[in-house]
Computed example of a mutant assay.
Amino acid sequence: MTTRDERNLLIIENLPLVGYLASETHARATHVSREELVSAGALALVTAADAFDPELGVPFGAYARRRILGAFADEMRSMDWAPRGVRTRIKETTRVRDTLTAALGRTASTAEIATAMGVAPDEVSAALADASRSVTTIDEAYDADLASLTPLPEESAIIAERRHVLQHAIQALPERMRAIVHAVYIEERPVKDVAEELGVSHSAVSQQRAEAIRLLRDALEQYYRDGQDAPTTSRVSAAVRERFFAHLAEAGGSRVARALAPTVAVT
């Protein structure tokens, strides 16, 4: 088990993960308060740090992620007013709607959905009205991965865009941070093994990982700032941050470069 100081360090270093996952979830389920998700996720992070056993060889980031997403699911279920039968009807109707929408390239009409389902249009209208009031359509077999929910076409575009920015942002990280992020979050290797391979301490890897997450968050905040001043969470020097954004702008293409201006000069 971790010591008290190690437990507190795990919580502090991974708080950005709570915010990131809460934003991702809120983007898919805008009817759920982001603040409530953050609150539930922060509590899950604390309990994850309390229960974490590094001897099991599982990276804390991966372990905490599942606990946080599970807490999101519990929070959403606790707010769900709909009984199982209603949720089933909602799920069937929205699935047909999304399938038709993807096939037609536009939002399917109530009449089109009703025809595809072989039911009366008023039944479709009622199901869609219930869907707009339903907090969640997560079923009892929820596997702690909200990414399994099928997004609408426009949501897919947003997710693809965010993934595009994030992938290039990872590549733009300073070399040591990039290697740590890849090892811990993509290869899911234990921090202890990564530290041994790099010849540094466990805490050094954790600090670099946390700073990398903050830089990635800065990149997303800057990209989606929509003309507003974006908050800065990273603690690196101004020179390191400027080089990071410059590399991201160069690798991400003109659209990313424009979104990052005036952080970087666009030619």
Rank of each mutant, 00 (worst) to 15 (best):
R89E: 12
D80L: 08
L43N: 05
Q208I: 00
D53M: 07
V181R: 00
L100R: 06
L56M: 06
R241C: 07
I213P: 00
A108S: 15
R209M: 12
V58N: 07
A265Q: 15
R209Q: 14
T25R: 04
D5G: 00
A49T: 05
K91V: 10
F245Y: 13
A257V: 10
V18R: 00
S201K: 06
V240F: 00
A265W: 14
T267V: 13
E75K: 11
T136I: 07
G70E: 04
R28Q: 12
G85P: 07
Q207G: 15
G19P: 04
R178W: 06
S203V: 13
T94E: 11
A144L: 13
R241Q: 12
A49Q: 01
A212I: 07
A27F: 09
L37Q: 03
D74T: 14
D130L: 12
A116H: 08
D139Y: 04
I138E: 11
Y142C: 12
G227A: 05
T30N: 05
A64H: 02
S201I: 01
T233S: 10
K91D: 15
P231E: 01
V184A: 12
P174D: 08
G70M: 04
A116K: 13
L216Y: 04
E123W: 03
E211R: 01
A82W: 01
S132G: 02
G57I: 05
D98T: 15
T263P: 00
T47S: 15
L37E: 03
A51V: 01
L128C: 08
P59S: 06
L104R: 13
Q171I: 05
F245A: 03
Y223E: 02
R97L: 11
R178Y: 07
V119C: 06
I159D: 12
G70A: 11
D143R: 14
Y224L: 13
L69S: 02
Y142H: 15
E75V: 06
T267M: 11
R66P: 01
